[in-house]
């Protein structure tokens, strides 16, 4: 048990570091876009650029929050134990599996990337909307299962 918690501590620390690094990379990309390569972005459709900016901001904010919460959890022994229990809880794992995690997240990510790469604006919008709907359905299923399970 103590070994598992120590392992979880290491995992949480590396998770926090990875989130912080990714967040900094996104911020660096934003700075790069705004000041250095702003003229070469003319070929990208405005809606794609807007979508990327919005998505990037949300992801950067989420990563920053996840990183902060990881490091705060590491400092508090009770919070660490609760986080460990939540991570290894069989009911939570069952709910996650039934709501399609993590496959839904992976396929949605692939659909969004495909949507950004495809040239046709209609196909691009369709792929992004389908990915968003897929994620929404997964969240709704998770909420319903949380209530009934």
């Amino acid at each position: 048990m103590q070994n598992s918690i120590e392992k979880f501590k290491k995992e949480l620390r590396s998770r926090g570091i990875i989130c912080a690094v990714l967040c900094l990379l996104i911020i660096a990309a934003f700075i790069l876009k705004a000041f250095i390569i702003k003229d070469s972005l003319g070929e990208i459709a405005p809606f794609k650029l807007g979508f990327l900016t919005g998505l990037g901001s949300v992801i950067a904010l989420s990563l920053a929050l996840m990183s902060i919460s990881s490091f705060r959890t590491l400092k508090n022994e009770k919070k660490l134990r609760l986080a460990f229990n939540a991570e290894n809880d069989e009911r939570c794992a069952a709910i996650r599996a039934k709501s399609g995690n993590p496959i839904i997240i992976y396929t949605s990510e692939l659909m969004i990337i495909a949507g950004l790469l495809v040239k046709s604006p209609d196909a691009s919008k369709a792929l992004i909307i389908a990915a968003a709907c897929q994620l929404l359905v997964s969240v709704v299923i998770k909420c319903v299962l949380n209530k009934i399970m």
């Binding site: 609760l82 229990n85 009934i148």
Partner: peptide, 26 residues
């Protein structure tokens, strides 16, 4: 109880109310 058996409070609530059937190890 949740801390003692390494699970969450919500799982204990669900087991108590009969909404969730615990696995054999739990």
């Amino acid at each position: 109880l949740a801390l003692a058996v390494s699970t969450t409070r919500q799982t204990i609530t669900s087991i108590e109310t009969g909404k969730y059937i615990a696995s054999l190890p739990l």
